[in-house]
């Protein structure tokens, strides 16, 4: 559901920074989806000796990777948006397509 909220926002907005915020929201949705797939009812944290039955540790690992890649992508996107703002003086994506005049 959070993925759909992010997708709708990304297709409907024209502001670059709001687009990057929607990218973060979509990333959060993917993380919630994968962690909920790996959940087993009544199981504890995936640490040996902590509880008898542990949840699936593989989605946690994959999502730990995905969090860092989300962060890197958003940092690079914000830096690029800053340069676009310096160049064109606006944040509207439809003004970037018009070109120089």
């Amino acid at each position: 559901m959070t993925i759909l909220v992010g997708l709708y926002g990304m297709t409907r907005t024209k502001n670059s920074i709001k687009m990057i915020m929607c990218l973060g929201i979509m990333g959060s949705g993917v993380i919630l989806l994968f962690v909920s797939v790996g959940y087993i009812p009544g199981a504890g944290a995936p640490i040996v000796g902590h509880s008898a039955e542990m949840v699936d540790p593989l989605p946690h690992t994959v999502m730990l990777t995905a969090i860092v890649i989300d962060l890197a992508t958003m940092a690079l996107g914000l830096a690029l948006v800053y340069h676009l703002y310096e160049e064109y003086g606006t944040l509207d994506v439809t003004d970037y397509l018009v070109g120089e005049d």
């Binding site: 995936p46 040996v48 946690h60 730990l64």
Partner: peptide, 8 residues
């Protein structure tokens, strides 16, 4: 002991 670290 941490399974996530062991896999990662």
């Amino acid at each position: 002991d941490n399974m996530v670290e062991a896999i990662l």
